[in-house]
């Protein structure tokens, strides 16, 4: 008797669940369900974008300063990688609709390849942040003992950093020069030793009579009327916090996406999908494209701030 409901399950078309009358109803339900899921995902990331908006609008200079030390080349490359993976994903659906098993498998493999490349680049970037004391969490940066830091001036190559800027900004040049300088960091704290180029630039502008600092900045960067590098660093740390939470959550979504792709690959390999039944491919595609869209926004908002100030 416990299988009462189950006996209905596969009495109709293959893949039709018991609660539906026909395939069309099922596809429609699954499609609406997926879109509702995406809506909640958009608002999930939306909370972070709100946090970004609030802090960016209050401390634009610190955000520009911090952003200049993200490598826009890697960010841009990753954007392109994701776009290619989106294309291959769209083509997976295209071939699934045609019941072309071999091309489906190839396209899924390509999508997974580009997804993995994206994550690889993220690892390179995160490693660079780890080595440069830019992870905003106490103790999660590379620990450099006082004794190791004494070789100042020696050309110590910065590990994990492959700086290939297409156009070099003053900040990235300064960062390249800073590579020779090893700052002690025995406890692995967040540190900022790249100066305040953007702030100086803005103060220069202020001299011409045009107010350049926001009201929050007039309070937030100064102590007793003088510029306070520590308070400036705190704002920069908030940028890196938002950067890590946003890209971290995005990378988490990528990893989930890769798991879905692996499952899809197995299904496609077995020839599950046909012109009549390809909803799982389409739904996975929606998810993948959504993750791509998040990155389309993250790239300009995180990597490309204030680059014009400094080149």
């Amino acid at each position: 008797m416990s299988t009462h409901a189950d006996t209905h399950e596969h009495s109709h078309a293959p893949g039709l669940q018991h609660q539906f009358d026909n395939m069309q109803q099922q596809e429609e339900s699954v499609s609406i369900g997926m879109w509702m899921f995406l809506v909640q995902e958009i608002l999930f990331f939306g909370g972070l974008f709100t946090a970004y908006l609030v802090f960016r609008s209050r401390y634009p200079l610190a955000f520009a300063e911090a952003s200049n030390h993200l490598d826009a080349f890697w960010g841009g490359l990753n954007t392109l990688v994701l776009i290619v993976s989106s294309l291959t994903m769209a083509l997976t659906v295209f071939y699934a609709q045609r019941g072309n098993r071999n091309m489906q498998v190839i396209m899924i493999l390509l999508t997974m390849f580009f997804g993995t490349v994206f994550l690889g680049v993220k690892v390179i970037e995160y490693t660079d942040k780890y080595n440069s004391a830019l992870v905003p969490v106490h103790g999660l940066n590379k620990r450099i003992k006082e004794s190791d830091a004494k070789h100042e001036g020696e050309p110590a190559k910065k590990e994990g950093a492959f700086v290939i800027p297409l156009i070099e900004t003053r900040a990235s040049a300064a960062a390249a020069a800073d590579n020779h300088k090893v700052v002690p960091n025995p406890r692995g704290e967040f540190q900022w030793h790249y100066g305040q180029h953007v702030f100086d630039y803005a103060m220069e502008k202020e001299k011409s009579g045009k107010p350049y600092l926001t009201e929050a900045e007039r309070i937030g960067y100064f102590s007793n009327g003088a510029f306070d590098p520590d308070k400036y660093r705190d704002k920069i740390r908030i940028f890196y916090f938002i950067y890590f939470v946003m890209t971290g959550l995005h990378a988490l979504h990528m990893i989930v996406g890769l798991a879905i792709m692996a499952w899809l690959l197995w299904m496609a390999f077995r020839g599950t999908f046909s012109a009549e039944y390809y909803a799982p491919v389409e739904m996975s595609g929606l998810y993948w494209h959504f993750v791509d869209i998040v990155w389309i926004f993250l790239f300009p908002l995180l990597y490309l701030l204030g680059r014009h100030f400094l080149h």
Partner: peptide, 18 residues
């Protein structure tokens, strides 16, 4: 989802004190 992300931020802030 917004409260989910808020609680997540709260947890990270509590753990890491950013």
């Amino acid at each position: 989802p917004v409260v989910a992300i808020t609680v997540l931020l709260l947890a990270i802030e509590r753990a890491a004190h950013v």
